[in-house]
């Protein structure tokens, strides 16, 4: 019994301390260094912020170059697939035209609904002016099972601040959570850490849209006994004074979730609303 415990101790010590022929560092020293780095970064020591910012900018650029082949291959495959499927594409488009024709009939109804929503949201502030919009390219959109975020190619040098709203076309997709000099990280709406105040429906129901790590965020803090109907458009309410009210987000589903208008995995260019006051901390 004691000899097996001795064996364990010897093997464990050996695993921690030994350095093989090609090993320059022992595991224990690297574990120690990694732990120190982790705590320095987590507890936000002053000097870590610029260091991290420089490392981020450098690694994001290298990552962009390294990811080029993986971007090219899907494009090539898609091209071949598209070429082979022209007929089915044509049929699909015909069907879509039919659907659009049907949708045209609902335009009047939608216009009225839009007017009502503008009234609800005090619509003077709802439309973004062109000068307040900054177009940015998505550098990295590596999908993590834990965090849903993208890296964009604009940073503090372009006036980006933490908390700024990020849009795809006119649809809200997330907010800036980390800024570097030349790049920024955008937390997407479907991330578990995302919380956005929203409003929807003719009665202007208020709720919080919470990310779930899945594809559809969920509505929380709804009025008691409220039953969600399918297909109601959800907008930002602007209650947090971070997002302008009236940015469309998605439509409700029966299970209390929101199907986003913008597909988070298909982003190439995004718009950043830079109308917020410079120097404002979120």
């Amino acid at each position: 019994m004691s000899s097996s415990r001795d064996d364990f101790g010897i093997a464990f010590r050996s695993a921690l301390l030994q350095r093989g022929a090609a090993q320059k560092f022992s595991l224990i020293s690297l574990i120690f260094v990694a732990s120190i780095l982790f705590f320095l970064d987590v507890f936000g020591f002053g000097f870590m912020k610029p260091v991290r910012s420089i490392i981020n900018d450098g690694v994001y650029r290298v990552s962009l170059v390294a990811s080029s082949p993986s971007r090219f291959l899907p494009d090539l495959t898609e091209g071949i697939k598209g070429f082979l499927a022209i007929k089915s594409e044509n049929e699909r488009l015909k069907k879509e035209i039919e659907i659009f024709k049907q949708k045209e009939l609902n335009v009047e109804y939608l216009l009225n609904q839009n007017k009502n929503l503008k009234k609800i949201l005090d619509s003077e502030d709802t439309y973004l002016k062109k000068e307040n919009i900054l177009l940015s390219k998505v550098l990295i959109d590596k999908s993590s099972p834990y965090l849903k975020s993208i890296i964009i190619n604009k940073g503090t040098s372009s006036g980006i601040l933490k908390g700024m709203a990020v849009l795809d076309k006119e649809y809200l997709i997330g907010r800036v959570v980390e800024t570097n000099y030349l790049s920024s990280r955008v937390l997407l709406l479907n991330d578990l850490n995302s919380r956005i105040p929203v409003t929807f429906g003719e009665d202007g129901i208020q709720a919080i849209l919470k990310g779930t790590s899945g594809t559809k965020p969920v509505l929380e803090y709804l009025p008691e006994d409220y039953e969600i109907e399918e297909g109601i458009d959800v907008f930002t309410s602007g209650k947090d004074n971070i997002f302008l009210p009236g940015s469309p987000i998605g439509t409700t589903t029966l299970d209390g979730k929101v199907k986003l208008f913008s597909e988070p995995s298909q982003l190439s260019f995004v718009k950043i609303d830079i109308s917020q006051e410079l120097g404002k901390e979120f």
Binding site: F38, F39, I55, V59, L147
Partner: peptide, 11 residues
């Protein structure tokens, strides 16, 4: 850095 985790965590 790429995933946005605190430095040293994946290490």
């Amino acid at each position: 850095v790429v995933m946005g985790f605190p430095l040293g965590l994946s290490s």
